[in-house]
């Protein structure tokens, strides 16, 4: 975790497995995963490790904000890790941790806004190698 990580927490009054479902079931996600009341969302996903998701947020003025990513870890009902790509950030990683808290669930979302080197490696091929070489040049 770095200073470029956004961390938000909240206790939701619902059991952990239901909260986990709300984060992974496309139909449920489309009911809450958008920024404003007058927006709507459409979600398609394949919630398995290595599976993709597409999250489209529709604004009233017709603007569409598309978010895509890949599931890195799916451990119901406690942990979910996926990559997050939008018009603003690429190759970032979102981690969702669910912990039991009384009769509810404490949700912790960590969004590391530093581009993930691992993703960059997958997508740009050899980028990590380049960075390592760069390090050697600098430390020489």
């Amino acid at each position: 975790m770095s200073e470029n990580t956004v961390v938000v927490k909240k206790v939701i009054s619902a059991p952990r497995d239901e909260v986990f479902e709300a984060f992974t079931d496309a139909e449920i996600m489309s009911k809450w995963f958008f920024p404003d009341e007058d927006m709507s969302a459409e979600v398609t996903n394949n919630p398995v490790v290595g599976g993709d998701y597409t999250l489209k947020m529709y604004a009233k003025n017709g603007d569409i904000y598309t978010h895509v990513g890949e599931y890195k870890e799916i451990s119901p009902p406690e942990k979910l890790v996926f990559t997050w790509n939008s018009d603003f950030v690429q190759n970032t990683v979102v981690t969702v941790i669910l912990e039991e808290s009384g009769s509810g669930t404490e949700v912790t979302i960590s969004h590391d806004l530093l581009p993930s080197v691992e993703m960059a490696e997958n997508h740009r091929g050899g980028w990590t190698g380049c960075l390592n070489r760069l390090e050697t040049i600098f430390s020489a």
Binding site: V6, K10, V19, A22, K31, W32, F34, P35, V89, L113
Partner: peptide
């Protein structure tokens, strides 16, 4: 600019969790 982006995402995720709570309510 970076801290604005961080602020923006903080607001975004906070709002998501509020929406999630509303959904369960």
């Amino acid at each position: 600019n970076v801290s604005e982006l961080i602020q923006r995402y903080r607001a975004f995720w906070e709002a998501r969790l509020e929406a999630l709570e509303k959904y369960f309510n």
